[in-house]
Design a protein around this nucleic acid. Structure first.
Lengths: 335, 335
DNA sequence: TCCCATCGCTCAATCGTTTGACTGTTCCTA
DNA sequence: TAGGAACAGTCAAACGATTGAGCGATGGGA
């Protein structure tokens, strides 16, 4: 009910019997301010008493800084973004800035341009590949810092990547150690940067293990359970089917598992399955999936740091820490 | 490279050879402005030419409106919030306002108070029960609109709820129709509003079906797979175990399923299992779970509308649309 | 004793928009 | 032909915080 109109700096100054500039400097710890302790106390008491909170708009207007950063993701339903968000939020909170997370709507790219251009957000973390080239150009044109996370985005100078090649390699090595030689790959979308890197890693690791990549053992073209199921059926229909499959992501792996089940092919007895991204779902499937944990939260963290210009290097950063193979029930020694 | 310092209304006004107030009124479609079409065209051309974007801070300062609303959730990793976010974002985008979604950190409730009090956000959608009573009181004290979604929050006047009682009832009816009579309930946390409502619905539906609720058949106290597994073990250890179980949420159901598997109890042959919230995971488990789809996106939508004051009623709103039983493989006729 | 430095503040301009009030033309109507 | 209405804008005061410059009083050193 205490619907006090609105408390401003002037109100506080009046109550504390000082100029509002003093209040402002006290709040902002301005070291050019020389002040008697008792005056400072009066100011602080007044702030307390009136429950004063600085107006964000006025502050932004004067300082040309909003203390807000944006994080663009394609879809909240995909749990890998939850991790990225967590890392980014952590850094934002520590820097006392606000993180504005939203999904990209392809139909309205100008929304994001406006947010940057109007000064509402100071910089953007791009974790989505759903933005068109011209939308990105428009974003870049605002002159505000933009950092991409988890994929290369043409035109964006700073990027934070996971070591997708190594993730694939970890799986392939695990499978070869189990005695597998016909190792297939269900790949992600052709236009996806991560999918390409995972494919590269798969091929490289095969060669490193003395095996020759067989083009017939690469199937699929998507990150959904439908494309995964379809690709699995293709592979299992081969004259000489694979004994193990590296699936590019968990959604596709879920599809692959159910396709195998429907065909009466047992996992891991008849075919081993492993995938990339250790989201909780992976552990709860039957059989529980062998996966590679990726440093998603760390990537969010580093992305945020790069936005602040607090990162070490320049250009591309590959986050290697935390990448780890998690062996569960979906892979076993070759029969 | 065109690093023009910063384009303001004054720049546009100069180029268009009018007063800046004219430009402002043109932009805001002020109907009190009378203007020659050719002048308006000059203004629009100047805006285009300079790529002018109104400064959000200045506008907020003057109008005392930020065009930003907050949505607080406990955890991005929980897919039910992805749905709520989707609905809320939709409305926000249609109203041309910005939605700021963030997770609640219990350690820093003043963060949210500050955001409201500083005028950064104009209102709050609360989808989290992680806020302490005094944090909520502090939020309320800002005098800004607050709407809770998916649960009752003491002190918050507007709330959007799903019909959790009915969801439980749908499952119980489905199970009785399959011939089950010993129907158990693995309940959610004691301090959770949704958990209580689901329990009530379960009891009510049993009675409506002519069955007497047996306290021994209610187990559990949590929404995690650990509590679900534990509760399932308890139930299966009963002298006369249930033939069907309604689990309060999917996470607990996942635990329940794996507990059953470990004990060699088959689902649905030996015991039927069903749960509430039709998230994608439910369809991908083995066996695929029978669930009740809840109107989460619709709740997000309505919550946002309530924030705008555009909702119909006052106080409590229960969203019934879209609630639907999805029968899959985890429930079958009693053996 | 005088001067200057330091202390402890105050003054006022400024950030970019919005908006109520106001001004100077035309034009129509009585 | 005077007077009011409609037209086509202009003026200037806000909104609330930040910040460089300024200014009187006190104290210390030469």
């Amino acid at each position: 009910m205490t619907s006090a109109k609105r408390v401003t700096l002037t109100d506080v100054a009046k109550l504390a019997r000082v100029d509002k500039s003093v209040v402002s400097r006290v709040i902002n710890d301005d070291d050019r301010l020389v002040i008697k302790p008792e005056t400072r106390d009066r100011v602080l008491a007044a702030i307390q008493e009136l429950d004063y909170h600085p107006n964000a708009a006025a502050r932004s207007l004067r300082t040309a800084q909003s203390g807000t950063y944006g994080l663009l993701i394609p879809d909240f339903a995909n749990p890998i973004y939850a991790e990225i968000i967590k890392g980014a939020e952590q850094v934002a909170a520590a820097r006392d800035t606000v993180l504005l997370t939203g999904t990209v709507h392809e139909d309205h790219p100008e929304r994001y341009v406006r947010m940057l251009a109007s000064g509402r957000v100071e910089g953007l973390l791009l974790a989505s590949d759903k933005l068109s080239a011209k939308a990105i150009e428009a974003l870049r044109h605002t002159g505000r810092p933009i950092v991409s996370v988890n994929q290369r985005v043409p035109g964006v100078e700073r990027m934070i990547l996971a070591d997708d090649e190594r993730a694939s390699a970890l799986v392939v090595r695990h499978l070869t150690e189990l005695g597998h030689e016909r190792i297939a790959h269900i790949r992600g979308p052709r236009n996806s940067d991560t999918a390409r890197r995972r494919l590269n890693g798969y091929r490289g690791a095969l060669r490193a293990g003395g095996l020759t990549p067989d083009p017939a053992l690469v199937a699929g073209d998507g990150y959904t359970s439908e494309t995964g199921a379809e690709a699995m059926r293709e592979l299992l229909a081969l004259p000489e089917p694979p004994t193990a499959v590296l699936v590019a992501n968990v959604a596709a792996a879920v599809g692959a598992l159910s396709a195998a089940r429907q065909l009466g092919v047992r996992v891991p007895e008849d075919v081993s399955v492993a995938t990339i991204h250790d989201i909780p779902l992976a552990a709860n499937l039957a059989p529980a999936l062998t996966t590679v944990r990726m440093p998603l939260a760390e990537m969010g963290r580093q992305g945020m740091l790069a936005l602040f210009g607090e990162d070490s290097g320049s250009g591309r950063t590959v986050v290697r820490t935390e990448t780890e193979l998690i062996v569960r029930d979906s892979t076993s020694a070759r029969a």
